[in-house]
Write a protein that binds this DNA or RNA. Structure first.
Lengths: 144, 144
DNA sequence: TGTATATTGATTATCATTTTCAATTAGGAG
DNA sequence: CTCCTAATTGAAAATGATAATCAATATACA
């Protein structure tokens, strides 16, 4: 199960970096992996507080940063001043369709576009390390 | 000349919205249009202060927002916590190659990718209003 | 079990903007 | 040209999200 693979990956990261496994990190990781894909720090914090009132905002921020460092999650910024985190599925990359009306975020992947990005980069002598692509507009529901 | 077209467009916007034309707005617009394409608020402010010490940071921020509203400029966020503005060339869209080492930003445009984006959106029943695409990595210089 | 070190939560700081507000300025009416 | 009202300005304070600080606490290895 993917969830366990990520837990394992994070455990390895913790060990590799000489960090410690803590109750809070376990709780946050569990909640993060069971929640919807794109969560802002604020949403995560609120959700966690419901069951675990003792957890501090700073700890949530720090732990999410660790998830990103460990490779099991990814930071995303949609330009609204909120940092969001999404859990990554092993080496897979996807892009986003962001509805500007209801805020819904859909994902997509397109190998042809990625090949073209590579071609564009090559023509500039540029080496791609990562990319982001977001299409903003109206989702099917809001377009009606 | 493009610069004058934008000045004219901003003048019209000012009139249409019942706003006023001021010395500061003229100075900021001139500097903005003559500066390089992607400027952070901070860079703009510093550059302006060199010649016009009286201009306040708040005024620069406010005026740049007006440029964006009027359509002659566009806000961009690269996820580093700095808002950047670029002047738009009439309806033209372009994407960015961002060097994560030296910070250089190159532009590109690719009609094929845009057509594919449209196709992806269509398949989701999504209507695109705008998009952003950024490729992060090493520019030709830094890759050596 | 002891102990050095990482982690935590609360609080404070930071950083880039935004807002506030009194003083100033623009620009239409007269 | 002069008044007058509303928009604008600059300085300072406020905001909002995240990051750093620090004393208290928890973890993991010897």
């Amino acid at each position: 199960m993917k969830r366990d693979i990520k837990k394992e990956a994070f455990r390895e990261f913790i060990a590799r970096e000489g960090l410690k496994s803590t109750r809070q990190r376990d709780i946050i990781l569990d909640f993060f992996l069971s929640a919807k894909r794109h969560m802002s720090v604020e949403e995560l914090y609120r959700g966690l507080r419901a069951r675990h009132p003792g957890i501090g905002y700073a700890t949530v921020c720090r732990t999410l940063k660790l998830f990103a460092q460990s490779g099991i999650a990814h930071e995303i910024h949609f330009g609204d001043g909120q940092t969001r985190y999404e859990h990554l599925v092993e080496g897979e990359h996807h892009d986003h369709l962001v509805c500007t009306v209801c805020g819904t975020i859909a994902e997509f992947e397109n190998k042809t576009i990625e090949a073209l990005q590579k071609a564009v980069a090559d023509s500039h002598g540029f080496i791609i390390r990562s990319h982001r692509m977001e299409l903003y507009g109206l989702c099917a529901k809001c377009a009606k």
